[in-house]
């Protein structure tokens, strides 16, 4: 299944989390979020866990691709 992807690189917190929140409201089955710093990675992951999503993180040369799925 292909998931919608949000590019949150370059954005400072809480914006990546806000985008993720809006993303899962639209696509409850899951989304992917691309971020470029560890703070955003941790914050989006924490939001996902708190909202009942499983998170998979792939390190892509400094960027992080987070896959959020139920």
């Amino acid at each position: 299944m292909k998931l919608n992807q949000i590019d949150a690189r370059g954005l400072s917190c809480p914006q990546p989390v806000l985008l993720a929140k809006k993303g899962v409201e639209k696509n409850p089955e899951g989304i992917q979020v691309l971020v470029d710093n560890t703070t955003a990675r941790d914050n989006v992951s924490r939001f996902a866990n708190n909202s009942g999503y499983k998170v998979e993180v792939i390190n892509q040369g400094g960027d992080f691709l987070l896959t959020l799925q139920k």
Binding site: K2, L3, Q5, I6, L19, G23, Q60, G61, D63, L65
Partner: peptide
């Protein structure tokens, strides 16, 4: 509106 991309491919 949140900008969405339809596929998972990345422009790395």
């Amino acid at each position: 509106e949140v900008k969405m991309k339809g596929d998972v491919e990345l422009e790395a």
